[in-house]
């Protein structure tokens, strides 16, 4: 167990930053190019996780537990969000019989 903290000393923080940035933008590109609303929703989860990873890494490098608590909260919010979001998707599927976001064009005044 004692060897694991050593990893932090060997890998620079920047690498973690780059990793989480990569994940974030993979998620974002997914959000932008995919048309299936469920995939889009999943990509949003990837983005959230990228942020979580960033928080945890910075928290570890600073030796502070607050970042991890934040991650805990983000997870809680994500769980709530997913439940509500999926309920909305189910309702929309019931009404529109599709999950293609190109066909969701009701969002205007």
């Amino acid at each position: 167990m004692n060897t694991i903290p050593e990893l932090i000393r060997t890998v620079p923080l920047q690498h973690y930053l780059v990793l989480s940035t990569c994940l974030f933008f993979i998620g974002m590109i997914g959000v932008l190019v995919r048309r299936n609303i469920i995939i889009v929703f999943m990509c949003i989860e990837i983005m959230l996780n990228a942020v979580n990873l960033l928080m945890v890494s910075v928290s570890a490098y600073r030796g502070e537990a607050s970042g991890q608590i934040m991650v805990l909260f983000i997870m809680a919010v994500a769980a709530a969000e997913v439940s509500v979001g999926l309920a909305i998707i189910v309702m929309m599927y019931k009404n529109l019989k599709t999950t293609n976001i190109d066909l969701f064009n009701q969002l205007k005044g």
Partner: peptide
């Protein structure tokens, strides 16, 4: 336009 994908793109 009311299109969700367009809104996402413009947000980005």
């Amino acid at each position: 336009s009311g299109k969700l994908s367009w809104y996402l793109l413009s947000t980005a």
